[in-house]
Nucleic acid binder design. Structure first.
Length: 302
DNA sequence: AATACGGGGGG
DNA sequence: CCCCCAGTATT
C-alpha cells in the first residue's frame, strides 16, 4: 500500500493541475466546483466555476440571487437541476447554518445536490478535513490496482472500494491524495488504460489481465440522446435562458423548433421543467426560473 | 437495483 | 457512431 501511495503522489507532484478550488481552502468554492464536476469532464468545469463565482462570489450572494440569474450563470453546463440545488443549498446555509457550509459530513449530506462525493470535496478542499472523495476515477483506479478488476463498477462491490479508499488515505493528506488519485484515473488509468505509462503497473493486481489483452467492457449503456426527453428539456431551457423575458407558449415551441406532432409531448416536458424549479408557466406565458416575471400578464387581482 | 437527468469531449 | 464524464435523487 505504501509503495502505491508514494508512487502516485510522486506522479501527482509532477503533473499537478492547479485548479483554484484545490488550494483556496474555501468551502463555498469547493462546493461550487464539486457540483459543477458531477458527471462532467474537468475541461468543462473551470468555465462554469468562473462564471458562477464571478456572478455569486459568496454563499450569501448565491442565496440572494434569483433563480433565473442562477440558471443563466449555469449556462450550458448541463444538468441544470444542479444549479437549482446549489441555489437552494446556499439559501439553507444562510437560513440554518449561519451563512456557512457545515463542516460536518451528515449536515452536508442533508443539503440538496450534495452526496458523498461532493460532501467529501467540501470537507477536504474547503476545511482540510480527511475525507475520501471517491469519484468514478478513484473507483476505477482502486478497483484495478487493489482488486484486479478490469472495469471496477461491474466487479468489486462499491463498499469494498470505499473501504480500500479509506484505508489508503493517510491522515492529514486528503487534500493532496484525493486529487492525485482522481487525476491519475483521468489521465493514466482511463477506461482504456495506458498501462505503458503507469507508475504502479508492477504493483497492479489487474496487470496480468490487461497484459493478456483483456478489454474492459462498457460500464453503463446509454440511451439515445437525439429525440430524448432530455434533449427537448435542454432545448426548451436554452430558449428560455436566452430570451429577454417571458414568452408565449407558442413562441417557445416555435423557437425550440418543435414539430407539430411533438408539441403535446414537449408541452408536458415544460411541465417537468416547472416542477424542477427551472421554469414557470402561467396563463399562456412562460419563462426562466421559478416565478413569473413582471412582463407576464397577471391574473386579475381579486 | 434501475432510471432520469445535459451537453460535449474524444476515440 | 459510441463511450464516457470529480454524481445525485427518485422510484
Amino acid at each position: 500500500m505504501g509503495r502505491i501511495r508514494s508512487r502516485l503522489l510522486e506522479w501527482y507532484d509532477a503533473h499537478l493541475q492547479d485548479f483554484p478550488w484545490r488550494t483556496a481552502r474555501d468551502p463555498y468554492a469547493a462546493l461550487v466546483a464539486a457540483v459543477a464536476a458531477q458527471q462532467t469532464q474537468m475541461s468543462r468545469v473551470l468555465p462554469t466555476y468562473e462564471r458562477w463565482m464571478t456572478a455569486f462570489p459568496t454563499l450569501r450572494a448565491a442565496a440572494e440571487a434569483d433563480r433565473a440569474a442562477v440558471l443563466r450563470a449555469w449556462g450550458r453546463a448541463g444538468y441544470p437541476r444542479r444549479a437549482v440545488a446549489l441555489h437552494e443549498t446556499a439559501r439553507r446555509c444562510v437560513a440554518q447554518h449561519d451563512g456557512r457550509l457545515p463542516a460536518d459530513l451528515d449536515a452536508l449530506l442533508a443539503l440538496p445536490g450534495v452526496g458523498p462525493f461532493t460532501a467529501a470535496i467540501v470537507l477536504c478542499f474547503g476545511y482540510g478535513i480527511d475525507a475520501p472523495a471517491v469519484d468514478t476515477n478513484i473507483v476505477r483506479v482502486i478497483g484495478r490496482v487493489v482488486f484486479g478488476d478490469l472495469q471496477p463498477a461491474a466487479e468489486t462491490p462499491r463498499g469494498a472500494i470505499d473501504a480500500a479508499a479509506a484505508r489508503l488515505l493517510r491522515p492529514g493528506t486528503a487534500a493532496r491524495w484525493n486529487p492525485a488519485l482522481m487525476d491519475y484515473g483521468a489521465r493514466v488509468c482511463t477506461p482504456r488504460p495506458k498501462c505503458g505509462e503507469c507508475v504502479v503497473a508492477s504493483l497492479c493486481a489487474a496487470r496480468p489481465r490487461f497484459a493478456a489483452g483483456a478489454v474492459a467492457e462498457p460500464v453503463r449503456a446509454q440511451g439515445r440522446f437525439d429525440g430524448s426527453d432530455r434533449q427537448w428539456r435542454g432545448r426548451l431551457l436554452r430558449v428560455l435562458r436566452e430570451a429577454d423575458g417571458p414568452l408565449r407558449l407558442g413562441a417557445l415551441l416555435k423557437a425550440a423548433d418543435v414539430p407539430a406532432e411533438e408539441k403535446p409531448r414537449v408541452r408536458a416536458l415544460l411541465g417537468t421543467l416547472c416542477a424542477d424549479g427551472l421554469a414557470w408557466s402561467d396563463g399562456g406565458w412562460c419563462g426562466l426560473g421559478s416565478e413569473a416575471q413582471a412582463p407576464a400578464p397577471r391574473r386579475p387581482a381579486r
